[in-house]
Amino acid sequence: MASALAPASEALATPAVLVAQDAAAWDDLPGWRALLQRHESLFAPWVEGGAIGLVERAVADAGAGRMLVWVRMGGATQVQWRDYRGFADCGVAVLFVAQPGALAAVHARLHDNALGQMKLQLRQGGMLLYVLVAKAQLLDEGFEDFLESLGLAFMGACR
């Protein structure tokens, strides 16, 4: 599989270091918040309460655990934890599932090109995105710009 651990500098890191980097990435709520603020134009069109979720692969497989949520509230994009209990009724429009190391790779570019790295992770299979609402709802609720910025055309991708 294409590596989910993009930065070459991390290629020699031990498993323990990778786990720690992953944990740090998931827990850095202020860092994610700052990223979302810098890209405000992508999130401003989201409806109030519009949200996307991120979970680790193990959580998605287990169907339970915690979910990092980016949610539009009070005119800003907030970052928070919510319980994840499977696809049904998880309260987000789109769910990103990250292989081990994938979110750390995005986090490593937090001050540089994190969304570009997220796009690369999606393309290389480090992250997978599930669409949990109909396309029309995604459009109505203002997600188009954000998803397009991740290279997800609103169409099939047979390639």
Binding site: F87, Y130, K135, L152
Partner: peptide, 8 residues
């Protein structure tokens, strides 16, 4: 039930 990965 496995959600779509493409919005189309």
């Amino acid at each position: 039930i496995v959600p779509q990965t493409l919005p189309h």
